[in-house]
């Protein structure tokens, strides 16, 4: 296809299949949460339809690409699309980081009586404000939402002023190791990219496999980390620190999983010989995504585990 022409694809069924899949998934999920029997199966059906759509849609794009139907302009459209998609993901995480900062800097101190808050002592008699929120109420107190909280004992003298997340989870154990793993995976991925530009397929495959292995190792350690935290009494239901901890690291872990799957697809495509030194946006898009996930982790390490 020449540089002067525009590429406009034919009609397609994939979007409507995607809409049916995602809606089925959500309707199933909502029903499952409300305790409806068929909820989980409908959810699984919706997920299956969505995955089928992704295979079909992406497969079609891969076919068109390998058949040389895309020119530089299409390539640039994909680049704009991927970069602004990643920016939208950044803003999604920003909402949860915002919640973390708000709770840390404002709502927890206020509940503890900061800023001349004269109401707190009356409303919250047995209250001691400590970050990570494991000591607000007596064990077994019922929340507004109906959930019962059970808190482990708080170390003597721990308050919002002197407590850090390190009192719950040691950042220099597994989290530091995980930071090293993810940073290393960013380096190996860059080596894979250099190898791709130089046209050394065996090297690309080696570095890609290393990247995926580092990502999977990260996920494994993250599961260990969760089970430790859970055993120590840090749960989603134990207040705002647990909420932000699990939601932020959970969404991040989900993104690492998706990234690892995408890297595996790229590995398969490298073996198939889909890319050459100049034309490999599929690889680059996934690399951008992987680096984004890396950067989010750095934010998590600093603000959720360390400070």
């Amino acid at each position: 296809m020449s540089e002067q022409e525009y590429y406009v694809p034919h009609g397609t069924y994939w979007p409507i299949i995607g809409s049916i899949g995602v809606s089925t998934l959500f309707v199933g999920f909502a029903n499952q949460m409300h305790g409806v029997e068929w909820g989980a199966s409908v959810m699984a059906l919706g997920l299956a339809i969505t995955v089928f759509m992704m295979f079909g849609w992406f497969g079609q794009v891969v076919n068109e690409s390998t058949n040389g139907m895309y020119n530089k302009q299409v390539d640039r459209s994909f680049r704009w699309g991927m970069s602004w998609f990643i920016f939208s993901e950044v803003m999604f995480f920003a909402a949860f980081f915002g919640a973390l900062f708000y709770a840390r800097a404002l709502s927890v101190p206020w509940l503890g009586g900061a800023d001349n808050n004269i109401f707190t002592p009356d409303l919250w008699n047995a209250f001691s404000a400590s970050w990570h929120q494991m000591a607000f109420l007596a064990p077994g107190t019922e929340l507004q939402s109906g959930t019962t909280m059970s808190f482990p004992a708080v170390p003597e003298g721990l308050t919002i002023e002197n407590a850090t997340p390190a009192d719950v989870v040691d950042p220099w154990g597994l989290p530091a190791l995980n930071t090293a793993l993810l940073l290393a995976s960013g380096v190996t991925l860059t080596y894979a990219h250099h190898a791709l530009r130089a046209g050394h397929r065996n090297q690309i495959i080696g570095w890609l496999v290393a990247t995926i292995a580092l990502g999977v190792a990260f996920l494994g350690f993250q599961i260990m980390e969760y089970s430790h935290a859970y055993a120590d009494g840090l749960k989603m239901t134990t207040g705002i620190y647990g909420s932000t901890f699990y939601m932020l690291t959970g969404f991040h872990g989900f993104h690492v999983t998706v990234g690892a799957i995408m890297l595996t697809v790229i590995l398969y495509r490298v073996q198939k010989g889909h890319f050459d030194a100049d034309n490999h946006f599929g690889f680059e898009g996934v690399a951008w995504y992987w680096h984004f996930v890396d950067v989010v982790w750095l934010g998590l390490f600093v603000f959720v585990y360390w400070l």
């Binding site: 919640a99 709770a103 709502s107 927890v108 509940l111 929120q133 607000f136 109420l137 107190t141 929340l143 507004q144 939402s145 959930t147 909280m149 749960k235 989603m236 239901t237 134990t238 207040g239 705002i240 620190y241 647990g242 909420s243 932000t244 699990y246 939601m247």
Partner: peptide, 10 residues
């Protein structure tokens, strides 16, 4: 059971 908007959980 998260407590983003629930003051009883901080």
């Amino acid at each position: 059971g998260t407590a983003f908007f629930d003051a009883t959980g901080g």
